[in-house]
Design a protein around this nucleic acid. Structure first.
Length: 492
RNA sequence: GGCGGCGUACCCAAGUGGCUAAGGGAGAGGUCUGCAAAACCUCGAUUCAGCGGUUCGAAUCCGCUCGUCGCCUCCA
């Protein structure tokens, strides 16, 4: 298995520190608002990475944190007139609602910054003791800063030269700091701000220190995989490395994995630009699985341009998938269909069989290559096409049945790794009625189908077509088959 | 200004040294169908931003140019 490591800028063979356990840490969200689709991407990507590592037989311990104290949370609390911890709690709850819908599993441990104040204080004390950090008085209390120049490797992840950073005019000039690049480990409390008791008086932790403290506590001093959005490379992860490695003297994380951004009109989606869409806004219009497929259809490091067109593409793909599983199910429930063209189906069967035989290898090959889910999904759709081709050849008999059962099982196991394709086709369509806001229930539709069946029996094509047209106008398509008429929601 | 990424058909997108450049969507023609829909078949990049170079051989490696995005400040 190969993973692209931001630290070295290339794909490397993945060798966990310990054969029995893989430690993985991903930076989660700061809970001061609803999450947007960019947060969703990060969560989905690391969810899939975790699932895949587990599938490969590694015992993964996955930690994803919540930053539940910071300036934005405090500001939000003032705006909403509630306490900072109420803000944090509210948006953690909302985060879970979104993630559950997107099929993102809980991490094994989901620590909160404010539950690790003591651990952070311990780290900071040690850093001061080793000369990597210094105190700065601020009124009655003190702040603590990391002394960047004491850590010669600073900049190794983001490939920045400290000299360039220092000459850059965009870093805050703060007289209390030895160097503009120094960053806060501990912030002295200002009036009206939440605070914790510490050796430096009342204060609160800086942003980066929480990940150091929590990662080390839950995963040990060296972890295998550390990830997050690409925007965290600098300064957040750079600072984490400085703190952690200064503290332990060991390599903090061995593989740095960063997901790309979601863009809108080619620009990074972000809160400050205001060009963001919240997860739930999108889920008002699209099925969560569509969003998940949309995310996983691009490689995790590539930028994804967000657009309705893209989402619709994903929706059609998914519909194609479920239409095929519907066909498989139909065949399996009527296995003794006409024995026409049996010869041809035998030929077709060999191709399907060949594809099924090497499917697992090809799927794993894709995922082994830096978690190339886009390619793995491509293989799934190749298989879908081959299944359709086979089904079109009017197969019959037990061999065909066995083959399609195998096909179904293969699709299922691929899907379960990605946590995709998990529904029945019927459920997919029922859910689509809801996500597209179609004011019809399954019973309504089945009633119409029955009316139409009678009309068709009477060869009243005009009435039959009218019923079909009425449903189509509402967004429901009817498909006439030998075994009867089925319905599905119209895409696009 | 510094550093890094990206540029593959109408759109999205995989491919990172060698058989016919995955897959999806849109489009055109066909099969099937009472008519449709779905599905399938056929067609569609002699070519991978441009120009040089390395190599028996490059979309894939190197250099330059152009375009574009990101980071350098809170950010998934």
């Amino acid at each position: 298995m190969r993973i692209f490591n931001t630290m070295t800028g290339r794909k490397e063979d993945f060798i966990p520190l310990s054969k029995d356990r893989t430690g993985m840490y991903a930076c989660g969200v700061t809970v001061y608002d609803y999450s947007h689709i960019g947060h969703a991407r990060s969560a989905v990507v690391f969810d899939v990475i975790k699932r895949y590592l587990k599938y490969k037989g590694l015992d993964v311990k996955y930690v994803r944190n919540f930053t539940d104290i910071d300036d934005k949370i405090i500001r939000r609390a003032h705006e909403e007139g509630i306490s900072w911890d109420a803000v944090a709690k509210k948006y953690i709850d909302e985060y879970y609602i979104d993630m559950d819908r997107l099929g993102v599993a809980r991490a094994d441990i989901e620590p909160k910054a404010t539950d690790h104040i003591q651990e952070m204080i311990e780290v900071i004390k040690t850093l001061i003791g080793k000369g990597y950090a210094y105190e700065v008085p601020e009124g009655e209390n003190k702040s603590v800063y990391f002394f960047v120049e004491k850590f010669p490797e600073y900049g190794k992840l983001s490939k920045k030269d400290l000299k360039d950073l220092l000459s850059g005019a965009r870093v805050d000039v703060d007289e209390r700091k030895h160097s503009p690049a120094d960053f806060a480990l501990w912030k002295a409390s200002k009036k009206g701000e939440p605070w914790w008791e510490s050796p430096w008086g009342k204060g609160r932790p800086g942003w980066h220190i929480e990940c150091t403290a929590m990662a080390i506590k839950h995963l040990g001093e060296s972890i295998d995989i550390h990830g997050g959005g690409a925007d965290l490379i600098f300064p957040h992860h750079e600072n984490e490395i400085a703190q952690s490695e200064a503290y332990t003297g060991k390599t903090f994380a061995r593989y740095w994995v960063h997901n790309g951004f979601i863009t809108v009109d080619k620009e990074k989606m972000s809160k400050s630009l205001g060009n963001f869409f919240t997860i739930r806004e999108i889920l008002d219009k699209y099925d969560p699985e569509v969003v998940r497929l949309f995310i996983l259809s691009s490689h995790y490091r590539s930028p994804i341009e967000f657009s309705n067109e893209q989402l619709r593409d994903a929706e059609s793909s998914l519909d194609r998938y479920y239409s095929t599983t519907e066909r498989i199910n139909e065949f399996l429930s009527h296995p003794l269909d006409v024995r026409a063209k049996a010869k041809k189906s035998a030929e077709q069967g060999t191709e399907l069989e060949a594809m099924l035989d090497n499917f697992k290898d090809r799927f794993e090959e894709a995922m082994d290559d830096d978690f190339n889910a886009a390619m793995a999904i491509g293989h799934v759709f190749e298989l879908v096409r081959e299944i359709n081709r086979f089904l079109d050849s009017k197969p019959s008999g037990d061999t065909s049945k066995l083959l399609l059962e195998k096909a179904k099982a293969t699709l299922n196991s691929a899907g379960s790794i990605l946590n995709l394709f998990g529904r029945t086709p019927g459920q997919w369509n029922i859910d689509l009625l809801a996500s597209k806001g179609i004011p019809l229930t399954r019973t309504d539709i089945e009633q119409k189908i029955d009316d139409r069946r009678i009309a068709r029996q009477d060869k009243d094509w005009a009435l039959a077509d009218t019923i079909r047209k009425e449903l189509e106008e509402k967004g429901v398509l009817l498909e006439d088959k030998k075994s009867g008429t089925t319905w599905k929601v119209k895409i696009a």
